[in-house]
Write a protein that binds this DNA or RNA. Structure first.
Lengths: 137, 137
DNA sequence: GTCATTGCAAATGCTTTGCAGTGCC
DNA sequence: GGCACTGCAAAGCATTTGCAATGAC
């Protein structure tokens, strides 16, 4: 919780009310909010916070590696605070909800060297798409 | 090639010059163009084609399952004409190039039922991110 | 006190939409 | 000839940017 704020302060972050509120919103539940949703939740605590600041702060958190940016559809990006544990995503095709899952295998193992075309691979993302229980009904 | 046009005609598609040109652009190389790029290439052959029509046509091709929509970053979506063969993507983090790869295993096998949280999974996308040989240099 | 950070509002990039005209079937 | 399809221009989101005011250090 304040682990996150500690780490950020340690990296020379100037700690403002806006940044703290954004960090707190992300640090709460492990949901995957859009920038708009983060702004709305942040504004509940700090009504004057601007969208631009939310975008700036989210961008910094991504750069610092504290948060992962997920673009599962062509719509708004979502921000995943669970950056420190390898995991993959289950995405609902209807409502866009994202859920973290922890599969067993290493997806990189399925890609033989000759299929890598000289790329230096640094990350693998796996997205399972389907309908969540609510939308399937 | 005209396989695609055949199939579309068979599904009751009204075949216009615009649609044919868009289909031809996608049917050529197995690159992954943005809507803007498709429009530019289509306009080389049919100068008056409008962006709206390109978007409409791409949307229809996606709905019909002939083309896959890929959003690898938060920027423009790309359209992948290689919809009939299961494959995955190698994405360059620097230049955005996408390359098709063909996995050995079934990624769905790695996700045990208890990790599916009641989702009815219909597709799995795997994206390998890294630097392509050109950008690594 | 300095300078990073904020807020506003306007700008941008991508995509969709409304509607009159066009042309495929 | 009917009605699906097109083009244009305008609207719609999500996001970024410029710049003056603010406030953390």
């Amino acid at each position: 919780m304040s682990d996150l704020l500690e780490r950020l302060r340690g990296r020379g972050w100037r700690l403002t009310a806006q940044r703290r509120v954004v960090a707190e919103v992300l640090d709460g539940d492990h949901v995957h909010y859009t920038a708009e949703e983060v702004h709305a939740l942040a504004a509940e605590r700090l009504p004057e916070i601007s969208r631009a600041t939310v975008y700036n702060t989210l961008g910094e958190l991504v750069t610092l590696g504290e948060v992962i940016e997920v673009s599962t559809d062509g719509r708004a990006k979502r921000y995943d605070p669970n950056a420190h544990h390898a995991h993959q995503h289950l995405v609902c095709a209807r409502c866009g909800t994202i859920r973290d899952v922890h599969p067993s295998g290493d997806p990189l193992a399925d890609l033989p060297t000759r299929e890598r075309y000289g790329f230096a691979i640094s990350a693998v993302e796996v997205t399972y798409r389907g309908l969540c229980p609510d939308c399937a009904a």
